[in-house]
Protein backbone atom coordinates (compact mmCIF):
# COMPACT_ATOMS: atom_id res chain seq x y z
CA UNK A 1 0.00 0.00 0.00
CA UNK A 2 2.95 2.25 0.48
CA UNK A 3 3.44 1.89 -3.27
CA UNK A 4 0.07 3.45 -3.80
CA UNK A 5 0.98 6.34 -1.53
CA UNK A 6 4.38 7.07 -2.90
CA UNK A 7 3.28 7.18 -6.51
CA UNK A 8 -0.21 8.53 -6.24
CA UNK A 9 0.73 11.92 -7.61
CA UNK A 10 3.42 10.73 -10.00
CA UNK A 11 2.70 10.67 -13.73
CA UNK A 12 3.45 6.95 -13.77
CA UNK A 13 3.18 3.86 -11.68
CA UNK A 14 6.18 1.65 -11.04
CA UNK A 15 5.26 -1.86 -10.10
CA UNK A 16 6.89 -5.22 -9.99
CA UNK A 17 5.41 -7.98 -12.08
CA UNK A 18 6.19 -11.57 -12.94
CA UNK A 19 6.33 -12.85 -16.49
CA UNK A 20 6.82 -16.23 -17.93
CA UNK A 21 9.41 -16.24 -20.68
CA UNK A 22 11.25 -18.74 -22.78
CA UNK A 23 14.92 -19.30 -22.18
CA UNK A 24 17.03 -20.17 -25.20
CA UNK A 25 20.00 -22.21 -24.06
CA UNK A 26 22.70 -21.80 -26.68
CA UNK A 27 25.38 -24.48 -26.77
CA UNK A 28 26.67 -24.33 -30.34
CA UNK A 29 25.77 -21.12 -32.18
CA UNK A 30 28.24 -21.87 -34.96
CA UNK A 31 26.43 -25.03 -35.96
CA UNK A 32 25.14 -24.25 -39.47
CA UNK A 33 21.87 -26.02 -38.59
CA UNK A 34 21.23 -23.80 -35.56
CA UNK A 35 18.77 -21.38 -37.14
CA UNK A 36 17.19 -23.80 -39.62
CA UNK A 37 16.36 -26.20 -36.76
CA UNK A 38 15.07 -23.36 -34.61
CA UNK A 39 12.99 -22.13 -37.52
CA UNK A 40 11.51 -25.59 -37.93
CA UNK A 41 10.58 -25.68 -34.25
CA UNK A 42 8.85 -22.34 -34.55
CA UNK A 43 6.94 -23.47 -37.60
CA UNK A 44 5.26 -26.13 -35.47
CA UNK A 45 3.54 -23.49 -33.30
CA UNK A 46 3.85 -20.20 -35.12
CA UNK A 47 1.24 -18.36 -33.06
CA UNK A 48 2.86 -19.35 -29.82
CA UNK A 49 6.25 -18.04 -30.92
CA UNK A 50 5.14 -14.88 -32.71
CA UNK A 51 6.95 -11.90 -31.14
CA UNK A 52 7.72 -13.99 -28.09
CA UNK A 53 10.29 -12.55 -25.69
CA UNK A 54 13.31 -14.78 -25.26
CA UNK A 55 16.02 -14.83 -22.62
CA UNK A 56 19.43 -16.07 -23.74
CA UNK A 57 21.43 -18.50 -21.62
CA UNK A 58 25.05 -19.12 -22.59
CA UNK A 59 25.99 -21.39 -19.69
CA UNK A 60 26.35 -24.37 -22.02
CA UNK A 61 28.55 -22.44 -24.42
CA UNK A 62 32.07 -23.90 -24.22
CA UNK A 63 34.58 -21.46 -22.78
CA UNK A 64 36.46 -19.46 -25.38
CA UNK A 65 33.76 -19.76 -28.04
CA UNK A 66 33.02 -16.22 -29.20
CA UNK A 67 29.43 -15.08 -29.24
CA UNK A 68 28.23 -12.19 -31.37
CA UNK A 69 25.19 -10.81 -29.60
CA UNK A 70 24.33 -8.25 -32.25
CA UNK A 71 24.01 -10.60 -35.18
CA UNK A 72 22.45 -13.34 -33.04
CA UNK A 73 19.73 -11.01 -31.81
CA UNK A 74 19.08 -9.90 -35.40
CA UNK A 75 18.77 -13.48 -36.62
CA UNK A 76 16.33 -14.29 -33.81
CA UNK A 77 14.35 -11.24 -34.74
CA UNK A 78 14.12 -12.49 -38.30
CA UNK A 79 12.44 -15.60 -36.90
CA UNK A 80 10.00 -13.46 -34.97
CA UNK A 81 11.61 -13.93 -31.57
CA UNK A 82 12.57 -10.89 -29.50
CA UNK A 83 15.65 -11.29 -27.34
CA UNK A 84 15.09 -9.31 -24.14
CA UNK A 85 17.84 -10.37 -21.82
CA UNK A 86 20.72 -12.53 -20.81
CA UNK A 87 20.47 -14.97 -17.96
CA UNK A 88 23.69 -15.46 -16.00
CA UNK A 89 26.80 -15.42 -18.19
CA UNK A 90 30.36 -14.26 -17.71
CA UNK A 91 31.33 -10.67 -17.10
CA UNK A 92 32.35 -10.25 -20.79
CA UNK A 93 29.08 -11.76 -21.99
CA UNK A 94 27.10 -9.49 -19.68
CA UNK A 95 28.94 -6.39 -20.92
CA UNK A 96 28.37 -7.40 -24.53
CA UNK A 97 24.70 -8.10 -23.84
CA UNK A 98 24.24 -4.70 -22.21
CA UNK A 99 25.91 -3.07 -25.20
CA UNK A 100 23.22 -4.41 -27.56
CA UNK A 101 20.41 -3.43 -25.23
CA UNK A 102 19.71 -6.71 -23.46
CA UNK A 103 18.78 -6.78 -19.78
CA UNK A 104 20.72 -8.90 -17.32
CA UNK A 105 18.59 -11.40 -15.47
CA UNK A 106 19.41 -13.59 -12.55
CA UNK A 107 19.24 -17.27 -13.21
CA UNK A 108 16.06 -18.64 -11.64
CA UNK A 109 16.26 -21.10 -8.80
CA UNK A 110 16.60 -24.72 -9.73
CA UNK A 111 17.20 -26.23 -13.09
CA UNK A 112 15.66 -24.79 -16.17
CA UNK A 113 13.46 -27.34 -17.83
CA UNK A 114 13.90 -28.10 -21.44
CA UNK A 115 11.18 -26.45 -23.42
CA UNK A 116 9.17 -28.34 -25.94
CA UNK A 117 5.64 -27.08 -26.53
CA UNK A 118 4.71 -30.13 -28.51
CA UNK A 119 6.07 -32.74 -26.16
CA UNK A 120 2.53 -34.11 -25.86
CA UNK A 121 2.71 -34.65 -22.12
CA UNK A 122 -0.58 -32.90 -21.60
CA UNK A 123 0.86 -30.03 -19.67
CA UNK A 124 0.26 -26.51 -20.73
CA UNK A 125 3.21 -24.81 -22.37
CA UNK A 126 3.60 -22.40 -19.49
CA UNK A 127 4.46 -25.20 -17.12
CA UNK A 128 7.44 -26.13 -19.19
CA UNK A 129 8.75 -22.61 -19.34
CA UNK A 130 11.42 -21.18 -17.17
CA UNK A 131 10.05 -18.70 -14.77
CA UNK A 132 11.92 -15.48 -15.13
CA UNK A 133 11.15 -12.93 -12.55
CA UNK A 134 11.60 -9.47 -13.94
CA UNK A 135 13.38 -7.48 -11.24
CA UNK A 136 10.30 -7.19 -9.09
CA UNK A 137 10.22 -4.38 -6.64
CA UNK A 138 10.84 -5.91 -3.21
CA UNK A 139 8.41 -5.42 -0.34
CA UNK A 140 9.04 -2.22 1.58
CA UNK A 141 10.71 -4.00 4.47
CA UNK A 142 13.22 -5.96 2.41
CA UNK A 143 16.73 -4.56 2.48
CA UNK A 144 17.95 -3.30 -0.84
CA UNK A 145 20.55 -5.47 -2.51
CA UNK A 146 23.99 -4.03 -1.84
CA UNK A 147 25.55 -4.52 -5.24
CA UNK A 148 24.46 -5.95 -8.57
CA UNK A 149 26.40 -9.15 -8.01
CA UNK A 150 24.88 -12.60 -8.19
CA UNK A 151 22.85 -12.96 -5.02
CA UNK A 152 22.47 -16.03 -2.90
CA UNK A 153 19.59 -17.99 -4.35
CA UNK A 154 16.50 -17.25 -2.25
CA UNK A 155 14.96 -20.14 -0.34
CA UNK A 156 12.59 -22.31 -2.35
CA UNK A 157 9.15 -20.74 -2.50
CA UNK A 158 6.54 -22.04 -0.15
CA UNK A 159 3.41 -23.02 -1.96
CA UNK A 160 1.20 -21.27 0.58
CA UNK A 161 0.84 -20.26 4.19
CA UNK A 162 -1.99 -21.93 6.09
CA UNK A 163 -3.71 -20.43 9.13
CA UNK A 164 -6.32 -22.58 10.78
CA UNK A 165 -7.31 -20.54 13.82
CA UNK A 166 -9.66 -17.54 13.74
CA UNK A 167 -7.82 -14.26 13.16
CA UNK A 168 -8.67 -11.75 15.84
CA UNK A 169 -8.88 -8.00 15.59
CA UNK A 170 -5.48 -6.36 15.59
CA UNK A 171 -3.58 -9.35 14.22
CA UNK A 172 -1.57 -8.90 11.09
CA UNK A 173 -0.55 -11.88 9.01
CA UNK A 174 1.86 -11.61 6.11
CA UNK A 175 2.40 -14.48 3.70
CA UNK A 176 5.76 -13.50 2.24
CA UNK A 177 6.29 -14.67 -1.29
CA UNK A 178 3.30 -16.99 -1.34
CA UNK A 179 -0.46 -17.39 -1.06
CA UNK A 180 -2.32 -17.16 2.22
CA UNK A 181 -5.05 -19.60 3.13
CA UNK A 182 -7.22 -18.85 6.14
CA UNK A 183 -9.64 -21.55 7.21
CA UNK A 184 -11.48 -19.61 9.92
CA UNK A 185 -13.06 -16.19 10.16
CA UNK A 186 -11.15 -12.91 9.99
CA UNK A 187 -12.37 -10.33 12.50
CA UNK A 188 -12.78 -6.62 11.83
CA UNK A 189 -9.51 -4.86 12.52
CA UNK A 190 -7.40 -7.86 11.48
CA UNK A 191 -5.17 -7.53 8.44
CA UNK A 192 -4.15 -10.17 5.93
CA UNK A 193 -1.23 -9.49 3.61
CA UNK A 194 0.16 -11.77 0.95
CA UNK A 195 2.55 -11.47 -1.96
CA UNK A 196 0.30 -14.00 -3.68
CA UNK A 197 -3.43 -14.61 -3.46
CA UNK A 198 -5.58 -14.77 -0.33
CA UNK A 199 -8.21 -17.44 0.30
CA UNK A 200 -10.53 -17.10 3.28
CA UNK A 201 -12.93 -19.94 4.01
CA UNK A 202 -14.58 -18.16 6.93
CA UNK A 203 -16.16 -14.73 6.85
CA UNK A 204 -13.78 -11.97 5.86
CA UNK A 205 -14.52 -8.99 8.07
CA UNK A 206 -11.05 -7.45 8.34
CA UNK A 207 -8.72 -6.21 5.65
CA UNK A 208 -7.20 -8.31 2.91
CA UNK A 209 -4.33 -7.10 0.75
CA UNK A 210 -3.12 -9.50 -1.92
CA UNK A 211 -0.18 -9.00 -4.26
CA UNK A 212 1.43 -6.54 -1.87
CA UNK A 213 4.72 -6.72 -3.76
CA UNK A 214 2.99 -5.80 -6.96
CA UNK A 215 1.64 -9.05 -8.39
CA UNK A 216 -1.39 -7.92 -10.35
CA UNK A 217 -2.47 -11.50 -10.95
CA UNK A 218 -3.06 -12.10 -7.26
CA UNK A 219 -6.68 -12.59 -6.24
CA UNK A 220 -8.74 -12.66 -3.09
CA UNK A 221 -11.36 -15.35 -2.55
CA UNK A 222 -13.73 -15.44 0.37
CA UNK A 223 -16.86 -17.26 1.47
CA UNK A 224 -18.59 -14.18 2.81
CA UNK A 225 -17.43 -10.68 1.99
CA UNK A 226 -17.81 -8.26 4.87
CA UNK A 227 -14.31 -6.83 4.56
CA UNK A 228 -13.33 -3.36 5.68
CA UNK A 229 -10.91 -3.03 2.81
CA UNK A 230 -9.64 -5.19 -0.01
CA UNK A 231 -6.60 -4.47 -2.13
CA UNK A 232 -4.71 -6.08 -4.97
CA UNK A 233 -1.27 -4.81 -5.94
CA UNK A 234 -1.99 -1.53 -4.16
CA UNK A 235 -5.39 -0.83 -5.72
CA UNK A 236 -7.91 -0.83 -2.94
CA UNK A 237 -11.59 -0.44 -2.15
CA UNK A 238 -13.10 0.34 1.25
CA UNK A 239 -16.31 -1.33 2.36
CA UNK A 240 -18.31 1.83 1.92
CA UNK A 241 -17.57 1.73 -1.79
CA UNK A 242 -18.53 -1.91 -2.25
CA UNK A 243 -21.85 -2.78 -3.87
CA UNK A 244 -24.49 -3.88 -1.42
CA UNK A 245 -25.42 -6.90 -3.52
CA UNK A 246 -22.00 -8.50 -3.14
CA UNK A 247 -21.84 -8.10 0.62
CA UNK A 248 -22.04 -11.33 2.60
CA UNK A 249 -21.57 -13.28 -0.59
CA UNK A 250 -18.98 -15.67 -1.90
CA UNK A 251 -16.77 -13.57 -4.13
CA UNK A 252 -13.48 -13.34 -5.92
CA UNK A 253 -11.61 -10.10 -6.23
CA UNK A 254 -9.14 -9.49 -9.03
CA UNK A 255 -7.58 -6.86 -11.23
CA UNK A 256 -8.58 -6.47 -14.84
CA UNK A 257 -7.29 -3.63 -17.01
CA UNK A 258 -6.20 -1.74 -13.93
CA UNK A 259 -9.59 -1.96 -12.24
CA UNK A 260 -10.49 -3.87 -9.14
CA UNK A 261 -13.35 -6.27 -9.80
CA UNK A 262 -15.44 -7.97 -7.14
CA UNK A 263 -17.50 -10.75 -8.67
CA UNK A 264 -19.74 -13.27 -6.98
CA UNK A 265 -18.60 -16.85 -7.38
CA UNK A 266 -21.61 -18.86 -8.42
CA UNK A 267 -21.78 -22.10 -6.49
Amino acid sequence: MSTQVAYRDAPFQLRGSTFTMMVLKVSDPRNPNFFPVLSGKIAQAPNFFRHAPVVLDLDDLPAGVPFDFESFVKLLRNLGLIAVGLQGGTKEQQDAALAVGLALLQAPRGKVEMFDPLAGTGRSPAQGLANVQAQAQPPAHAPAPAAPVMLEPPPPPRASMLVTEPIRSGRQIYAAGCDLIVVGPVSPGAELLADGSIHVYGTLRGRALAGVSGDQNARIFCQSLEAELVSIAGLYRVSEDMDKDIRRRQVQIYLNNGFLHIDPVSA
Partner: peptide
Protein backbone atom coordinates in the same frame (compact mmCIF):
# COMPACT_ATOMS: atom_id res chain seq x y z
CA UNK B 1 -4.39 -1.22 18.70
CA UNK B 2 -7.85 -0.71 20.20
CA UNK B 3 -9.32 1.52 17.53
CA UNK B 4 -12.84 2.63 18.49
CA UNK B 5 -13.31 6.28 17.66
CA UNK B 6 -14.15 5.45 14.04
CA UNK B 7 -16.96 3.18 15.23
CA UNK B 8 -18.39 5.80 17.59
CA UNK B 9 -18.20 8.34 14.77
CA UNK B 10 -19.68 5.90 12.25
CA UNK B 11 -16.84 6.17 9.74
CA UNK B 12 -15.28 2.72 10.18
CA UNK B 13 -16.13 1.78 6.63
CA UNK B 14 -14.10 4.63 5.22
CA UNK B 15 -10.78 4.01 6.95
CA UNK B 16 -7.90 3.47 4.52
CA UNK B 17 -4.87 5.11 6.09
CA UNK B 18 -4.40 5.91 9.74
CA UNK B 19 -2.52 8.02 12.25
CA UNK B 20 0.38 5.55 12.37
CA UNK B 21 0.70 5.51 8.57
CA UNK B 22 1.07 9.28 8.72
CA UNK B 23 3.63 9.14 11.54
CA UNK B 24 5.63 6.60 9.54
CA UNK B 25 5.44 8.71 6.39
CA UNK B 26 3.45 6.04 4.53
Amino acid sequence: GLRNLDLIMGCERRVVFDFINVINGE
